[in-house]
Design a protein around this nucleic acid. Structure first.
Lengths: 120, 120
DNA sequence: GCATATTGAAACGGTCCCGTAACGTTTCCA
DNA sequence: TGGAAACGTTACGGGACCGTTTCAATATGC
């Protein structure tokens, strides 16, 4: 049964969804990400590669050190990895990890569950 | 035309929605909230009052100073106000503001727009 | 009345993130 | 070949948040 419909939310549903997902993350003892880190991580996993520090900085509208530091933190969490680009050794290409994919998979499950439980 | 259906998202849609909304907030020059602050603000505006520091702390599973500090910050942003409870002057009741309502209204609009633009 | 409990806030030390500026490395090009 | 440009990182000072502990004010109960 296909439902080729755009997803339309009422304001109360939109806020409730964000509320429930945020609560899940806050209550969770898991290490949580800042809004910027989340945006960076999602860009890396959802937008087509390759990803560079400069490209991410432009895409998010932030400075390069912000990206470098976020990658430091998320690298420690094993959510992303970095390698020098052999073709242009000035560049650093950011790659996904298994742990990062699992992290986002679990996160998507939370969003889906909360969306399904939303009052009509 | 009514659509009394539960909202069902595919994993890619769930992550894409969070991605797009996060990007909007990051790119915005507006002051953004931490995940905890957002959870507190949404609880205040979506759950029935009255709200106290202790109640919010229990609800989110964090310590009271976390709530006090978040209220300090969001109070400076005029998103919430605090008053002593005249019936029990140990309590502080947290109240909504016009600015806070507008902030969340605008936030809901972003979520709704991104949800509507989601690929099927 | 007085000790105890409760509430929210303040103090303290530590950690992380921020923006700006400077830096080392690598590439480009005149 | 040598200077300029591009890339990512590091350094620096400042600010925000954290958890724990302590505190002042208020309420409760013997």
């Amino acid at each position: 049964m296909l439902r080729p419909m755009t997803i339309s939310l009422k304001p109360s549903q939109a806020l409730s969804l964000w509320h429930q997902v945020s609560l899940s993350e806050v209550r969770d003892t898991a290490p949580d990400l800042t809004m910027r880190q989340a945006a960076i991580l999602l860009t890396i996993y959802l937008d087509p590669p390759p990803h560079t520090v400069r490209g991410l900085a432009e895409h998010l509208g932030v400075t390069k050190p912000v990206i470098t530091r976020a990658l430091d933190t998320m690298g420690t969490m094993k959510l992303v990895t970095r390698h020098r680009d052999p073709r242009d050794r000035r560049n650093v290409v950011i790659a996904r990890t298994v742990e990062g994919a699992l992290y986002l998979e679990r996160f998507a499950d939370v969003i889906i569950a909360k969306a399904a439980a939303l009052p009509r």
